[in-house]
Structures are given as structure tokens and as C-alpha cells.
Design a protein around this nucleic acid. Sequence first.
DNA 1: TACTGTGAAGTGATTCACAGCG
DNA 2: CGCTGTGAATCACTTCACAGTA
Lengths: 216, 216
Amino acid sequence: MTSAARPGKERLSEAAVLRLSLLLRSLAHLPTDGVETVSSKALAERFGMNAAQIRKDLAHLGEFGVRGVGYRVADLRARLGSILGLDRVRVVVIVGAGHLGQALADSGNFNGESFRVAALFDVDGRKVGGRSRTGVPILHVDELPRSVAELGAEIGVVTVPAGEAPRAARALADAGVRGVLNFAPATVGPFPAATVKNVDLTLFLESLAVHLSAAG
Amino acid sequence: MTSAARPGKERLSEAAVLRLSLLLRSLAHLPTDGVETVSSKALAERFGMNAAQIRKDLAHLGEFGVRGVGYRVADLRARLGSILGLDRVRVVVIVGAGHLGQALADSGNFNGESFRVAALFDVDGRKVGGRSRTGVPILHVDELPRSVAELGAEIGVVTVPAGEAPRAARALADAGVRGVLNFAPATVGPFPAATVKNVDLTLFLESLAVHLSAAG
DNA sequence: TACTGTGAAGTGATTCACAGCG
DNA sequence: CGCTGTGAATCACTTCACAGTA
């Protein structure tokens, strides 16, 4: 799923990235009343994780815990944000201004501290020229190369029908985004210069369905 | 369904379920011109998988390959559909009639051979009583227990804001659904009688972001 | 003969258990 | 002390290699 090999540093497993993301978010839920430090054990208990794993994950990205004390919460936040690449805003564009595309464009999830949806793209003449409910402009797909460059977009999201997905993803990669998030149930990529992540919503439903039959 | 013939009593790993789902979908892309059987090697090459793993996955759910020949495509389809619980239509309800909820309710992904969205639920009086673009009725959340029973809904999808998610998920579980698909960035469950699957869209963006910083 | 089914080997990630430090 | 960081043990999953069979 990840395309470009990274020669330099030790690789962080996909699972580890997920845990760190979750951990960073969890920190927001910590009581804010004068809590300066937190131990791996406390975090593990509070958020249902394994203390050893938290320590291992954190040690992996440079020892910055304090023995006998724990981790300084502020340090932890900064460090995680930096490692996860959330320490600055990434511009996101979405190809496919259908219901899902517009829902994502307007959603708080895709417009927070670290991400901002700057444009939607579509081929439908009735949509092009308009805006989403929160004002994200809808442009023609032909504008992709120019817009991605102008906006400095780093991430492209694909919310077109499965048949169009490979073309849309390629257009994004060619336009210069470095990450592609594909919501269509289709195989796209890999591309030399862009990481692809497939999020197949149907698959999630299906993985629930198997439990329905199996359980008793 | 209670006594469904399940030769392999061992648990299928989450990863295996994913592969089998993908495999079943891949079968649809096979040339249909008189192809009766297919070998693990052929499947592996065509869809970028590992032949041994395909065999192991399939052997796990009862030996039904033919040595020297391969797998009968029709058998394979039927067997996969049955194991994955896709051999009949599951009724889905969605709590949260916002843009994402309505997008999913109307999407082809959630309304196919195996799934059908039968109702949306919300607390907003302006939405309740209306319908989505494709006609899925929007009911008040208070109707959940009655509606889930009447519709025979087995799966509930949560598309409410994070703060409301735990409440919504619990309402679904209490109403009797057996699977919950949670799109909110919040921890819900676990519940004794329902399987929970969290699909945190923010996490996907974040996992792309880490690649953006690392490369260069 | 060409393939499946599977024991064995290999790989990677998780957990344990404790040495070492503030 | 209490806690981190980490080698060792464990566990889970993947791949290999081949025996066995229609």
C-alpha cells in the first residue's frame, strides 16, 4: 500500500502510526488541571492500551521520557505532532464532488488543526463553478494540475465511482500530491511519488457481516 | 443460520476476512467466457496476492478445491459469500442524518447485493420526517428501538459528532443491532451483544501525513 | 501432470520482565 | 523508590516447500 521505500530511518509500522495517532488524540482527553507528566501505565489504563507497547513506541522515536517520572505531556504532544506530521496545516483537495466528497469537504474531520480542504473537483458541468455548503469551490478536473500547484495541495482524496477512480488517482499523482486517499472500491496505484491509502467502505460493512453469521 | 455448516471452527483473522472479501470481489473481474475453474496461482498473479496464502485461506474454510485443477468458480463464489455473510441482504440503519450519513445512505456501496439502508435517524426536528435524496426516511432517534425491530436491522452506522457517538452507539446496541460501524473519532463500546468497528476518517489522513514528512 | 492442502520455516509485531536511571 | 528503555520470550501471521491426490 505504501509505494516509496524510505531508506534512511527505521520504519514505523502502520499499526504503530495508528497507535501514536490515537495516543495523541487521547492526550486531549487528559484532565487539564495541572497534570504536567503522565506515565505509560496511566495512559494504558486510561485508554485501554498496553503500557509496554506505549513505551516501546515512544522510545522508538527518541528517548524523551523521564525515568521514575513519566513523560512530560507538553513534550509528548509536540513530539507526536511532529512525528505524525501534524505540526502544520496540509492542504487537501477532493476529486469527486458527489455527496460523499462534499460531506468530507465540509466535515470538521477534514478541516481541523492539521488539514484544510481547499477545493473539490468534478466533471459535471452543473457542479463546476459552484461551492459546497461551507464554501469550498468546485472546479473542473482539468484544473487539477494548476490548482494543486497553486494551492500547494499535498493530499488528494478520491470520491468518484469505482470505474473512474484509477484515472482520478493518477491525475492527482501527476498533479503532484504526495498522498492519495481513495474511497472507491477499486485498486489504484501504486505511484512512484505518492503514497496511496485505500479506504473501502464496503469492506468495513462486510467485515461486520462475517461476525453476524459467526456469533451466537 | 444457527446451524450453518462451518467446518473450520478456528477463528478467521481480521486480515483473512479482508483478503477473502477482496478475493470475492476480484472474482467478478474474471473473464466470464467459459472460465469454470481457477487456480490459486492464476488468482494470485491476476490480483497481486500470494498463491500459498489464498490456498491457506480457502483450505481454512473447508477443503473444496480440486487437486490438479483448481477451484470451481461458482463454488468459490458461493462459499465465500456464505462465509462472509453476504449471501443475504442485511438491513442497515444510520444514526446521524448529516451530510456523511445521508451520503452513505444514498451510496451504492451501502445499497448493493448484501446491504440495504432502510432508515436514517436524527434528533433535528427539521430533518425528522423527511427523506434522503434517494428516499430513505429520516426518523427520530427515539424511534430506534421500535424501528430496528420492525425493520430487522442488523447493522447500525454512527455518523454523529464525536460527542454524541457513544450515546448513539449504545442506543443502537440496546435496540438490538449486532454490528456497529462507527465513523466518529471517539471510542465506543465494547458491547456484549454487538461487534463494533471503528472507522476513523481522520486517522487515514493522519497516516498519510506521516509519510509526507518522512520522505523528501 | 498440475494442482491443492499443509507441516515447517520464517518474519514481524506484541508482551513480559527486569536492568538501569532520575 | 517508580518509572523508562529494552533484550528475551511469546504470539500471530506469512511464505516456503513438498507430500498427496484427482
